[in-house]
Computed example of a mutant assay.
Amino acid sequence: MADVVDRLISALNTHDVDAVMRCYLPDAVATWPDMEAGNPQEIGSYCTQMWEAFPNLRFTRWEKTACGDAIATEMVACGTQTGPYLLVGGEVLEATGRSVSARCSCFWNVVDDLIASQRFYYDQLQVYAQLGMCLPPVFDRSG
């Protein structure tokens, strides 16, 4: 059952969108901090967008734990932003040439050796800071 996660990570690292989509059930749901996808085509579209922004994006798995139909991984994602990157809110960050390295965790539920659901977590603030972005200051206007 955990083999599907290994196949997915391999497909993500080779940027093979068809292989990525074959890892999911037709009604699979995947969530990331910045979006939710409701089928393999939307998941593939998200991956293609990330590969356009980070053409050398790779995941290195540190840990993988399985219990029943649930699988958890800890990974690091690394890549250089040489293409347009869609930000939360719909703005596009043009290529910065900056590299990012972010720890991430992912939780999968697997049915019949295909992914039924995925929850992917990473620190967006860490990624944005590595891309040279900063958040605007927040002022306390209550006083």
Rank of each mutant, 00 (worst) to 15 (best):
N39H: 15
G44A: 06
S45W: 00
S45D: 06
M50S: 12
W51C: 07
Q41N: 05
Y46P: 00
M35F: 06
S45M: 00
E36W: 02
F59E: 04
P26M: 09
P33V: 13
R58W: 05
E42S: 06
E63C: 04
F59A: 08
A37R: 06
Y46W: 07
A30E: 01
E42K: 08
Y46A: 11
D34C: 05
D27F: 10
E42R: 10
R58V: 13
A30Q: 02
M50P: 01
F59S: 05
L25T: 09
N56K: 09
M50N: 09
Q49Y: 00
P40K: 07
E36Y: 01
F54A: 10
P26F: 07
T60W: 01
Y46V: 02
I43V: 14
P33G: 14
P33T: 14
D27Y: 11
S45R: 01
Q41R: 08
M50I: 06
P40Y: 04
P26Y: 04
A30H: 03
P33E: 15
Q49G: 13
E36Q: 15
W51Y: 12
V29M: 15
N56S: 13
E63F: 09
T48M: 03
N56C: 10
E36R: 13
W62R: 15
F59Q: 03
T60H: 07
F54V: 12
R61L: 11
V29C: 11
D34L: 13
A37V: 12
Q49A: 15
W62P: 00
Q49P: 01
V29D: 11
P40M: 05
L57G: 06
T31G: 04
W32M: 05
P55D: 11
T31R: 12
T48E: 08
E36D: 05
C47W: 02
L25R: 14
F54M: 13
N39G: 13
L57S: 06
L25F: 00
P40W: 02
C47A: 09
L25H: 07
W62V: 14
S45Q: 04
P33W: 13
M35W: 04
A28M: 05
R61W: 01
A53E: 02
E63H: 10
Q49D: 07
E52C: 02
Q49S: 15
T31N: 08
F59Y: 12
P26R: 10
E36P: 00
V29R: 15
E52R: 09
W32C: 02
A37C: 15
E42V: 02
R58N: 11
W32P: 01
A30V: 02
N56W: 10
L57N: 07
Q41K: 11
I43K: 02
C47G: 00
